[in-house]
Amino acid sequence: MARANWRGGLIWGWTLAVVTFMYLPALCLFLASLTSSRYFIFPITKWGLAWWDKTFASLEIHALFRTSILTAAVVTAIAVVIAFFGALAFARYDWRGRSIYQKIVLLPIFFPQSVLGLALLLWFNALGLQLSWQTAAFAHLVWIIPVVTLVISIQVYSFDPALEEAAFDLGASRFQVFREVTLPVLLPGVFSGALFAFLLSWGNFPLSLFTTGADTTIPEYLYAKMVAGYTPGVPVLGTVSTAGAAILLLGGYALIVLWRRRRET
């Protein structure tokens, strides 16, 4: 009995520590946005939503959102397509050189992002490309495609190749097999990959810092404002950015769960 209590206490303590260290900073960020003061003073003396109003009214912030969403959306669309076929190539089919291909495709995950960002900056300069959100999207893709490939490949590894053979045997063309069987069966993995792609691009700072040029994404803006020109608009934007990511993630998870339940009824 005493041993069970001790074990229960340990689990609760551990959970509390995880919540405290992982989620308390995000809560502090939210609290910091609720001040009406110009500066961040803790404990907060004047509460209010004034900085939320100012932030949402700012055209600069609107432009930031547009740039970040556009970059993340383009990265997601391209990364998912390339990663899907890349994952199929090494997780579904057996061919000579498959193992080397897998390692080459996945290696950029382990590159330090700041080094990768600098390398891409030099590369863009060498090619004479003007830096913008498009070059940032390319930079994101270099790092995100391997991550998404890995995410999708987990689903592909559990795919029964006999499903494709059965569909082909039942008269389907190669394209019909892909449309009617391969893609729908792997869709949860593709969806997870898309979520990963969007969120990783949305929150990326090191690659964006080197490659956006005159365009600015939300993480870059937050960093710039923290270095110079802090206002409580920074925690407002930080809260919105974090909450948006969380809602997208939880919403995506809920969609996958609903889809699976629907499939199983």
Binding site: A162, L163, A166, D169, L170, G171, V181, V185, L187, R263
Partner: peptide, 20 residues
Amino acid sequence: VPANRRPTCMVFQSLALFPH
């Protein structure tokens, strides 16, 4: 003649039913 053009059909060991 490829499998999808043959007047034959296979019941697989794993059955290969489409789970979706």
